[in-house]
Simulated assay, not measured.
Amino acid sequence: MSTTPELIHSYISNGLDCTHLEVDGDGQHFTAVIVSSAFAGKRPIQRHQLVYAVLGDRMREEIHALSMKTLTPEEYQG
């Protein structure tokens, strides 16, 4: 079964409390806009590590390329 944007959306939303989440992709390369208060006070690399932790082994096995924009709710509104 190939990975879809909807699957990645469900993986992220099940593991991270998001106020906004968009995932697009073609089955190989995916982009995500992830808005979560969990990102508050964290540097970009720490935010990405949070998402990678939620995705776990799927990053190696299912998801070959994921480009992320990680924002707090305040950054997203601004």
Rank of each mutant, 00 (worst) to 15 (best):
M1P: 13
M1A: 15
M1F: 12
S2Y: 08
T3A: 11
T3F: 08
T4E: 01
L7C: 09
I8G: 03
I8C: 04
H9T: 14
H9C: 09
H9Q: 13
H9G: 08
S10M: 13
S10N: 13
S10L: 15
Y11A: 06
Y11F: 14
Y11R: 07
Y11K: 06
I12R: 03
S13F: 07
S13G: 05
S13V: 06
N14T: 12
N14W: 09
N14R: 11
N14Y: 09
N14E: 15
N14K: 11
G15R: 00
G15W: 00
G15Y: 01
L16G: 02
L16V: 03
D17K: 13
C18A: 02
H20A: 11
L21I: 04
L21A: 04
L21G: 03
E22W: 00
E22Q: 08
E22A: 09
V23S: 00
V23L: 01
V23N: 00
D24S: 11
G25K: 02
D26W: 04
Q28V: 13
Q28M: 10
F30C: 02
T31E: 12
T31R: 09
A32D: 00
A32M: 06
A32E: 04
V33S: 12
I34S: 01
I34P: 02
S36W: 10
S36A: 09
S36N: 07
S37Q: 13
A38P: 12
A38N: 15
A38Q: 15
F39G: 01
A40F: 14
P44A: 01
P44M: 05
P44G: 01
I45R: 10
I45E: 08
I45A: 10
Q46W: 11
R47K: 05
R47T: 01
H48D: 07
Q49F: 06
Q49H: 11
Q49M: 11
L50W: 09
L50C: 12
L50G: 08
L50S: 10
V51T: 05
Y52N: 14
Y52Q: 11
V54M: 07
L55G: 05
L55N: 06
L55M: 08
G56Y: 10
G56P: 07
D57P: 08
D57I: 00
D57V: 00
D57Q: 13
R58G: 05
R58D: 05
R58A: 09
R58Y: 06
M59A: 07
R60I: 12
R60N: 15
R60L: 15
E61A: 14
E61W: 13
E62V: 09
I63G: 04
I63Q: 05
A65D: 02
A65C: 05
M68S: 15
K69V: 10
L71T: 04
L71M: 13
L71K: 06
L71V: 03
T72N: 04
T72L: 04
P73N: 04
P73R: 02
P73Q: 02
E74R: 09
E75Y: 02
E75P: 01
Q77Y: 08
Q77T: 06
G78E: 12
G78T: 14
